[in-house]
Write a protein that binds this DNA or RNA. Structure first.
Lengths: 311, 311
DNA sequence: CCATTACATGAACAGTACTCATATCGAACT
DNA sequence: AGTTCGATATGAGTACTGTTCATGTAATGG
């Protein structure tokens, strides 16, 4: 009979599987254990009487049946999400104000496209991006001057809720042909004697300085630049080294404009979170914005990874 | 958050609810108890934070939120079903032979349109309708001369599986203005002294005779006609009484061509089942045909009701 | 007004989807 | 080869959620 017990959960699983390229990675996205995904997949295959993924292939390859189900997922899940959005609007109204403060300079790159696709779905929400560097953006939240803050520092504060966005790697940038490019990864001492090119922010807000160089007692001279391209240009013209998120430099790496190396054996990983007033946590248009941003990020940004408790 | 735990089950529930017009009727369609549907509905409404049905309204009226979810169901569920069909085809192949024997004359009326919509979905299946009256159509199954038999008599036989289609009421037909039309329902003795107009089948295949008149010792004279319209014509011209399925005469009743009355206080209810070789029970193109027929019947035929174990 | 029908509710049960712990597998590296 | 490491599979146990059963309550119609 066709009473095959298929559910949206299964479609979400298959989608995550194909996007993540493996059971373990898919499990993270779904906030499940690897075991759960493995079991669920097996059960689904048994119920359908068809294999869905080519076992032993990295990244996981879907079978014809798997691809057919994935097509269903791509067709149906957006419809479901749209319906749930509409229901949220019915429940909470469809208007609101959404002022966003951003701590990190490179975030504008991916925030803008996410905002665009969000606007399509919540046209009545007033979107605003707060400009300039903020010393304490969380304060803006509590003073009701911002509704959402993108930050890399989720220190608990009363009345503030943090939602994890993603983890990303900070890469050290060298000019092509630099002597350090011979190394697989860089150590703190490798930075000694080089100028560090950064955005114009206090030193204690630079992950590289705070977490790597300062603990090792290394204090290289700094030079500041406002724009990402300016930093890259300075590196390329051998004025110093820089450290930027992997996603921000990926296009320049491809063109060989600069060279990137991990910082430390396992790389220097940072996180981004969204902060909002706990009182607003229930607002659908806010929650959906975070959702949109995250979805958009994972679709667009290379080399990012999910965080515990995140999406 | 939008992680609202909605599932296809819920969409199926809402669809059944709107089609059936009530919790109890929906439960029957879904092969669940009324309690299960009630619980599920309540849980869904709680999860969404929105009422979905207007309590206290017959037939059940959906709220705006309910209608939005129903729209989702109508959009998504056919896609799901199509995908499952495609998977069946991947598993079992998409071709097959489907020869149908029909026991009941009036069945052609609704079988034809169902066959048409089935052909759209399984174009490679060879569809055949066996003509003429069959004394023992089940024998045709076992002799491999038919693959599917529509019958009202699901007596267990080795190697044969029965799938319930639906229950329907046999209505007694009178000419307009007939004396018996004054009664709310007819009793066996009311048939005494009237000619009984029937299809040309043995008496023991007529539910009215076998289950009502014969037990009461009443043996009215019979007159046979091949076509439904002919029977109706004879009744209208006062040559006798007849008993036909409610759905078959509904259009004629509307036009006042004949008058119908239940047979007995609770009416004379009969059933239709599909018989197939147990060996074929797993074949997707067969199972899906039965599904199509049933879906089609419930959508098109007035006054039929689901059977235990049926769809 | 009582009988009937439809829906709601609570407790108990059953089935299922998880997690945890452990085993197996395959590839890369000595 | 053997070893190590990452990724997937498997089994047992658990927590949870969906379902049923039994009963209560609210409307409906003769």
């Amino acid at each position: 009979m066709n009473s095959t017990h298929i559910e949206l959960r299964h479609l979400r699983l298959l989608q995550a599987l194909s996007e993540a390229g493996g059971v373990t990675a898919a499990a993270e996205r779904l906030h499940l254990t690897q075991s759960a995904v493995s079991h669920q997949l097996k059960a689904l295959e048994a119920a359908l009487g068809l294999p869905l993924v080519e076992r032993a292939a990295r990244p996981a390859q879907l079978t014809a049946a798997g691809r057919r189900l994935l097509a269903l997922a791509h067709a149906a899940l957006p419809q479901v999400d749209a319906a749930l959005r509409d229901l949220s609007k019915l429940r909470d109204g469809d208007a609101g104000e959404l002022r966003i403060a951003v701590e990190c300079h490179t975030c504008y790159d991916w925030l803008m496209p996410a905002m665009d696709s969000y606007r399509d779905v919540w046209p009545a929400v007033e979107l605003d991006l707060l400009g300039g560097f903020q010393a304490d953006p969380i304060a803006l939240l509590l003073e009701q001057q911002a509704d959402l803050v993108v930050t890399s520092d989720p220190t608990p504060r009363a009345g503030v809720t943090y939602v994890p966005l993603f983890g990303f790697e900070m890469l050290a940038l060298l000019p092509p042909g630099h002597a350090l490019a011979a190394k697989k990864w860089l150590l703190p001492r490798d930075f000694a004697g080089h100028t560090l090119i950064t955005y114009p922010v206090p030193e204690d807000r630079l992950d590289l300085v705070r977490r790597v160089l300062a603990p090792a007692g290394i204090k290289p001279p700094r030079r500041e630049a406002q724009l990402t391209v300016a930093i890259l240009q300075l590196v390329a013209s051998r004025r110093g080294l820089a450290a930027l998120p992997a996603w921000a430099v990926a296009p320049y790496l491809e063109r060989g404009y600069v060279v990137a190396r991990p910082i430390g054996k396992h790389g220097l990983w940072a996180e981004l979170h969204v902060a909002l007033r706990s009182a607003d946590a229930g607002r659908a248009y806010l929650a959906d914005f975070i959702d949109t941003v995250r979805r958009d990020s994972f679709a667009r940004l290379p080399g990012i990874r999910p965080l515990a408790g995140g999406g």
